[in-house]
């Protein structure tokens, strides 16, 4: 909660000092047609003549009541837009998140189990290259290969152009999601794989694996009983804490693929001077990232009993 207040004050200060003129972005191209008196009237109506702290107070009071204001570009309540855009984004981010977690874990385990082998080197170099690849560049590359040259997937959007909601088939949705999901998940795979690999090597050389082997366990039984839980710890905390990167990645990916999600909306809001929408999405993303980190903490306690006692001692 304190975090939310801090972030809201900070972003409010940033925006009020930005060169964006709210009246101008409200009126748009017609700005030259209105008289200075009309302009002052609008400013007064919005409370722009008041002091900054007063303005912030008025705004935060409205936000607290669930009113984020009305978007200047879309001419709809900000909450509606966030909701609508988020349901498109969550599909993209959710699938990408699950895939990058699963593949990252599998690749990390494979690499760690065969440390030093060719497989390990391939996975390692693959991860290093991917970790240093910007998402938007990778997105463009994917577009070039799969959409432009091979023509397997559409170039952008979430549904075929010109189709109505309700007419869009599941196959169409999938086809439009494929490339953005690929682009977004690929970066997450690398860091999960590298961290899991390190942990796997550490666990394999640990005393308790030696003892488990001495007790006659081997192969998959050993892995299920003593391996998986131990090596998944860094992957889990990392993956839940990566909601922020996921959101940031989604902004770029949605832009590249013209995917109508929250990320695209935030870019439009920023470029179009849509202050209510920009602030609304900022606050929303803070909540989103906070939820991710909070879940990471909660899960960590569930999986690792050592965390529980530590907390009790504090």
């Amino acid at each position: 909660m304190g975090l939310l207040v801090a972030i809201s004050i900070f972003s409010f200060i940033l925006i009020s000092n930005s060169p964006v003129d709210p009246v101008q972005s409200y009126i748009g191209a017609e700005i030259s047609r209105i008289s200075p008196e009309q302009r002052t009237n609008i400013e007064e109506y919005w409370g722009l003549h008041r002091s900054k702290p007063e303005q912030y107070f008025l705004w935060s009071k409205a936000v607290f009541q669930g009113n984020l204001g009305e978007s200047l570009i879309y001419r709809k309540p900000v909450t509606d837009i966030i909701w609508e855009r988020f349901s498109a984004s969550i599909l993209l981010m959710g699938i990408a998140w699950v895939l990058s977690g699963v593949f990252g874990l599998i690749l990390g385990i494979l690499a760690g189990m065969n440390e030093g082998s060719i497989l390990d080197r391939i996975i390692k170099s693959y991860s290093f290259i991917l970790a240093s690849t910007p998402a938007f560049w990778f997105g463009l590359l994917v577009l070039m290969v799969f959409a432009a040259w091979l023509n397997w997937f559409p170039v952008g959007l979430a549904a075929p152009a010109g189709s109505l909601r309700g007419e869009v088939s599941l196959a169409d949705t999938f086809k439009h999601l494929f490339l953005p999901v690929l682009t977004l998940s690929i970066g997450g795979v690398a860091s999960i794989a590298l961290h899991t690999r390190e942990k796997m090597i550490e666990v394999l050389s640990s005393e308790f694996i030696r003892f488990a082997r001495a007790k006659g366990l081997s192969g998959m039984r050993l892995f299920w009983r003593h391996g998986l839980r131990n090596i998944s710890l860094p992957a889990i905390s990392l993956h839940f804490a990566s909601f922020g990167e996921l959101f940031g990645g989604a902004v770029l990916t949605e832009q590249v693929f013209s995917y109508p999600g929250l990320g695209q909306a935030v870019v439009r809001a920023g470029l179009g001077g849509d202050i209510p929408l920009l602030l609304g999405i900022t606050l929303f993303s803070v909540v989103f990232i906070f939820v991710g980190n909070f879940m990471a903490d909660l899960l960590y306690v569930v999986i690792d009993p050592r965390m529980k006692t530590k907390q009790a001692h504090d």
């Binding site: 005393e207 308790f208 030696r210 003892f211 488990a212 001495a214 003593h226 131990n230």
Partner: peptide
């Protein structure tokens, strides 16, 4: 085998 230390037990 009776191993040396508590580290031989799975911490989880």
């Amino acid at each position: 085998l009776i191993p040396q230390s508590v580290k031989a037990l799975d911490p989880l």
